[in-house]
Design a protein around this nucleic acid. Structure first.
Length: 533
RNA sequence: GGGCGAGUAGCUCAACUGGAUAGAGCACCGGCCUUCUAAGCCGGGGGUUGCAGGUUCAAGCCCUGCCUCGCCUACCA
C-alpha cells in the first residue's frame, strides 16, 4: 500500500552472480486495504463504479494518481477511527474487522471493491519502482494464499510433524501454537503451558499472518504440494511480470520450488521470520531452513530538517532527534514519486547553472541519472542495521560520500578521454601490449599511482565480501574511496599536457582503469554513469 | 518480563573471522583555479570506543554484571 523507499535498499547486487527471480508479496487482504475500503465506503460514500471512474480518471499523465488518493484517505480513516464516543469507536472497529473478513472471504461486493483498489495501487507501485529500474517477475497475492487453501495444506503438515500443537491450558487455551526457537522448555521446569509460544491459529479458528507466511514459504521451496494460478500482469521492455490468481493460464513460467530464498524485509519482521524458519526446521526441512536468509535491514526515516522542508511542522522534541520515523497512518512521510521528482528538480537546477548550452533532453536525462544515483547511493551506503535518516541535501551533495561525488569523479575521467579524442577501451587495449611501466611505478612518484591501481583492482574482492556479509554498503564504500583517490590523482597530474610520452600513456591507462572500475562498481549498485554533469 | 539490535570525534557513520598510531564524511578553521569541469584538491583541530570487571601476547570486537536508547514479543496483519 504505502510506497516505501526501503524497497530500493536491495537491488541488483546479485545480478552478476546468480540467476534469480524477484517476487513481491502483495498483501492485498490486509487491514490497510480494509481501511481504504472503509474510507471509500463511509467517508467518501463511493461505490465500486465511482472508484473505477476515479482510477480511470487519475491516470492521464500526472503522477499524482490513485495511489495518492489512497495515501490521503488512509490517513483520514485512521484519524476517523479514533474520533467519537467509546461506543462509536467500537462500532468503527467492528466495521473495520467485518470489512477485513469480507475481503478475506472473497466473493462479495466488498472484496470486489478491495480487489479493484488494491490492483490499481499495485499498478502504480510497479510504475514507481520501474523509475528506479526495479522490476518484478512474479506478484504472489495474499488473496490466493487464502482462496487456494494454501494454509489448509500447510496446517495438515504442521500438525502431522508436531510443529503445531493445540494448547489446552492457560491464556492460549484453544489455540494452535508453536514453540519459539529459544524457549528450551523441555529441559527446564516443564510444568504448565508454554505461554511464550507463538499463536498460529486463534481460538476462533482463524489463522494468523505467520501461519499464512509458513504456507507461502513451503510453496516457495516447493514443499507445499500446491501451486498458484498464474496470469500475465505487466509487460516490462525485457520481460513479463506475472501475478497470482485462482485459475490461471495453462502455459506460464515456473515459479516456486526454489533452492534458496533471500527475504528482503525490514528488521521489525525478524520475529515472524524466525518463526517461519523454525517451522521449516521443525517439519524436517532443515536444508531449506538453512538456505532461507532473512535479509533484514533497518527502516528509512527522515531527518527533522528534511521533514520541515517537506512542509511538515516538527515539534521541538522531534527536532532534537536524529530522525523521525515515517507513518502512513499519520500521513507523515514522503511518497517515492514525490521524492524522485524533488531530487530530479534539484539536480536539474545544478546542471542548468553550468550548462546553459545543453539540450533539454540532455539536461533531463542527466538530472535523472544524478537524482536516482544519489538516492540509491544514500540507501546503500549505510550498513543494514543502521537506521537511514534520509535528507535530500545530504544525498544530493557533491561533497562527501554521495552518489553524485562518485559520478563526478567518473565524469572527470570521461572528460579527459573526450578531450583527448580517444576511447578508454582503446587505451587499455594498447597499453596491455606495451611494457614500460615498471620504471615509473617503481619510482617515488609512482607510489600513489600504484596504490590507486591496487585499489581499483579490488572490485571483485569487495563484491565477494559484500555477498558473504550480505552488505551492499561495502560496494558503496569502495566506489567512494576509489572516486576520492582518483580525484586526488586527477588534481595531481595534468594528463593531457603531460610531456613525457610514457608517463602520459600510463596516466591515461590509469584513468581508463579507474573509469571502468568506478562505473562497474556503481552499476552493481544500480547507479548509472552520466556522460557529463 | 522475554528476544533482537545499537551505544565509537560536536553530528551521521566505518572498522573483514580479535592484530600495528581506532578511520571516513558533514560541520568548523586555514590554504589552492592563466591548466583535463573548483560540483574539486591539500592541510588543521577534534577520541578514556556507555560504565565496571574478566579472558588474551593483543579487546571497539570475546565473557560477566550494570546503565541508556530503539525495535519486536503478550490469539494485529
Amino acid at each position: 500500500m504505502i510506497i516505501c523507499i526501503s524497497w530500493i535498499k536491495i537491488n541488483n547486487i546479485f545480478d552478476p552472480m546468480l540467476w534469480y527471480k524477484v517476487e513481491n508479496f502483495f498483501d492485498n487482504s490486509c487491514v490497510q486495504v480494509a481501511d481504504v475500503v472503509v474510507g471509500f465506503g463511509h467517508l467518501e460514500k463511493k461505490g465500486k463504479d465511482d472508484v473505477e471512474a476515479l482510477i480511470a480518471g487519475s491516470g492521464g499523465g500526472s503522477r499524482k494518481g490513485f495511489d495518492y488518493l489512497c495515501w490521503d484517505l488512509y490517513a483520514r480513516v485512521s484519524q476517523w477511527y479514533s474520533e467519537g464516543s467509546d461506543s462509536e469507536q467500537a462500532a468503527k472497529k467492528k466495521l473495520r474487522l467485518d470489512t477485513l473478513h469480507l475481503i478475506e472471504q472473497g466473493g462479495n461486493a466488498t472484496a470486489e471493491l478491495a480487489e479493484v483498489i488494491s490492483t490499481a495501487v499495485l499498478r502504480r507501485h510497479l510504475e514507481t519502482m520501474a523509475r528506479l529500474g526495479i522490476e518484478y517477475d512474479f506478484l504472489p497475492r495474499e488473496s490466493e494464499i487464502l482462496h487456494l487453501k494454501f494454509w489448509e495444506s500447510a496446517f495438515e503438515k504442521l500438525k502431522a510433524t508436531g510443529v503445531l500443537y493445540e494448547e489446552t491450558e492457560g491464556k492460549n487455551k484453544g489455540c494452535w501454537v508453536m514453540r519459539r526457537p529459544k524457549s528450551e522448555f523441555s529441559s527446564e521446569v516443564n510444568e504448565g503451558p508454554d505461554e511464550d509460544a507463538k499463536v498460529i491459529v486463534r481460538s476462533n479458528g482463524t489463522v494468523t499472518y505467520v501461519g499464512k507466511d509458513i504456507a507461502y514459504h513451503l510453496w516457495k521451496f516447493g514443499l507445499l504440494g500446491k501451486d498458484f494460478g498464474y496470469k500475465p500482469f505487466h509487460k516490462y521492455p525485457s520481460h513479463e511480470c506475472w501475478i497470482s490468481c485462482e485459475q490461471g493460464e495453462k502455459v506460464h513460467p515456473h515459479f516456486g520450488g526454489v533452492r534458496a530464498i533471500y527475504n528482503v524485509i525490514d528488521s521489525r519482521q525478524s520475529d515472524p521470520q524466525s518463526n517461519v524458519i523454525q517451522a521449516l526446521r521443525g517439519m524436517g526441512h532443515t536444508a531449506e531452513a538453512d538456505r532461507y536468509t532473512h535479509f533484514s535491514y533497518e527502516m528509512v526515516a527522515l531527518t527533522p530538517r528534511y521533514a520541515e522542508e517537506l512542509g511538515y511542522t516538527v515539534s521541538e522534541e522531534d527536532k532534537k532527534k536524529p530522525y523521525i520515523e515515517v507513518s502512513g497512518r499519520k500521513g507523515f512521510g514522503v511518497k517515492a514519486d514525490d521524492l524522485m521528482d524533488l531530487m530530479i528538480a534539484a539536480s536539474r537546477g545544478e546542471i542548468l547553472k553550468r550548462h546553459v548550452e545543453w539540450s533539454e533532453e540532455q539536461v533531463s536525462e542527466t538530472a535523472r541519472q544524478i537524482a536516482y544515483g544519489a538516492l540509491r547511493y544514500f540507501m546503500l551506503r549505510y550498513t543494514r542495521n543502521s537506521v537511514i535518516a534520509f535528507d535530500q541535501k545530504d544525498a544530493l551533495a557533491i561533497e562527501g560520500e554521495t552518489g553524485p561525488y562518485c559520478q563526478y569523479a567518473l565524469v572527470r575521467a570521461k572528460n579527459i578521454f573526450r578531450k583527448a579524442g580517444v576511447a578508454p577501451e582503446a587505451v587499455l587495449a594498447e597499453y596491455a601490449q606495451s611494457a614500460g611501466l615498471n620504471a615509473i611505478l617503481g619510482s617515488e612518484e609512482g607510489g600513489d599511482i600504484w596504490a590507486l591501481l591496487v585499489r581499483a583492482s579490488k572490485r571483485i574482492f569487495v563484491l565477494e565480501q559484500a555477498l558473504v556479509a550480505s552488505e551492499p554498503a561495502y560496494l558503496a564504500k569502495h566506489a567512494f574511496q576509489l572516486a576520492q583517490e582518483f580525484n586526488n590523482f586527477y588534481h595531481k597530474h595534468r594528463i593531457l599536457t603531460e610531456e613525457n610520452a610514457a608517463m602520459k600513456s600510463l596516466l591515461l591507462t590509469v584513468a581508463a582503469v579507474v573509469l571502468r572500475e568506478i562505473s562497474a562498481t556503481l552499476k552493481l549498485m544500480g547507479i548509472e554513469s552520466p556522460e557529463a554533469m
